[in-house]
Design a protein around this nucleic acid. Structure first.
Lengths: 203, 203
DNA sequence: ATACAGTGAACGATCGTTCGTTCAATATGG
DNA sequence: CCATATTGAACGAACGATCGTTCACTGTAT
């Protein structure tokens, strides 16, 4: 009895989902290499090993491909949300977060893709929404940690932890972008970054 | 005796320079409205009131127009460089800088144009050079101020003031971008921004 | 008379999208 | 269990628009 509810794991549908993902992966590669607007739909189809027409069976258009990629970025944040929710003393956890998130976000691919999405977000509200949503959920987790740290007396009182959390993330990401664009490693930056951020909320 | 060195202020050349600037201004407007890659050379020519062919008498190509705009951004920084070089007590001057620079950089036009240039800088080294140069000169002026503040005992010792200066600028610009993309005023952010940055370098 | 700013038609390439068609996988009737 | 009808994934040619750039030409200031 094949429900419409429960997905039928038919051979056909399985291959379909794989094709879809293949297209998304190809699109990411193209956008990284040449940028969103310099990438043609033909380029994506070719890299995915899919015909041009078939691509339009999977996605309504080029814009929707980028939108789905932007939405998928959310998954990448999960580890950091988990990290921030761990039970530990706030300053230590904060430092751990700075280290790991900075490393993640300083990957050239991450930087370039984020920049591509950010640039498109300026004029495409739906993409702006996803972009800001991801930012907000991370900032929320971080501000919760700050709140806990303040309550436990490990951090100095802050008037607006949500705002502070956003600012911290922005410093980290700005730093990562600079390192990528200058083509230098972030080892030197990481030290100052931690020092500055920890000092700014220290008791 | 008209030197080749000294520009001859002939009627013709005057009008020529004006045309050039008109094209650049039109290009800026187009890039702001639709983005660099979504703007056609015809759009720029039309907005500048110049024929398509004539535009190519003034610029070798579309890319060079953006490059010149990126180079022109340097002029906008002059007031802030002057501010940072003023003789005053470091924390006070720092706060003044944060206020004025944040206001400047949170203008939607500034944000969008910077984002457009940054996006192009990823794959165009000459534009990346100008972009980073502007950043560096501002960071240099700020780090000089930090050095003075440390020497005079108004700020805590910092291991790498050039790095710290860059990070501060990045937090400011990240904050500005968020405010623009969210469409909110930066009044609320400004308070936390100052609080955080000043606390991070306070004695 | 010469040089050159100014013009817009034209070029070839590429853009995102649509289209008619093919054909293998599925569902259905016997 | 086989034969047949139906579906929709896959395909690539074709569409009209637009891209950045070139070029032959005109008008005008020197």
């Amino acid at each position: 009895m094949s429900e419409t509810e429960k997905a039928s794991p038919s051979v056909r549908d399985k291959a379909l989902a794989q094709r879809r993902m293949k297209i998304l992966e190809a699109a990411v590669m193209c956008f990284l290499e040449n940028g969103y607007h310099q990438t043609g739909v033909r380029d994506i189809a070719k890299k995915a090993g899919v015909s041009l027409g078939n691509l339009y069976n999977h996605f309504p258009g080029k814009h929707d491909i980028l939108a789905e990629i932007a939405a998928l970025e959310r998954l990448e944040l999960a580890p950091f949300l988990r990290l921030l929710n761990r039970n530990s003393v706030a300053p230590k956890l904060l430092e751990k977060f700075i280290t790991s998130y900075t490393k993640y976000v300083a990957d050239p691919d991450t930087v370039i893709l984020s920049l591509e999405i950010a640039g498109e977000a300026v004029r495409k509200p739906d993409i702006a929404g996803m972009f800001l949503d991801n930012r907000t959920s991370l900032a929320k987790a971080l501000s919760d940690l700050l709140d806990r740290g303040i309550a436990q007396g490990d951090l100095r009182p802050l008037p607006d932890t949500q705002e502070v959390a956003s600012l911290m993330i922005e410093m980290i990401e700005g730093c990562a972008y600079r390192c990528v664009l200058e083509g230098v490693s972030l080892r030197k930056s990481m030290k100052s970054l931690k020092d500055l951020l920890l000092a700014s909320v220290a008791k």
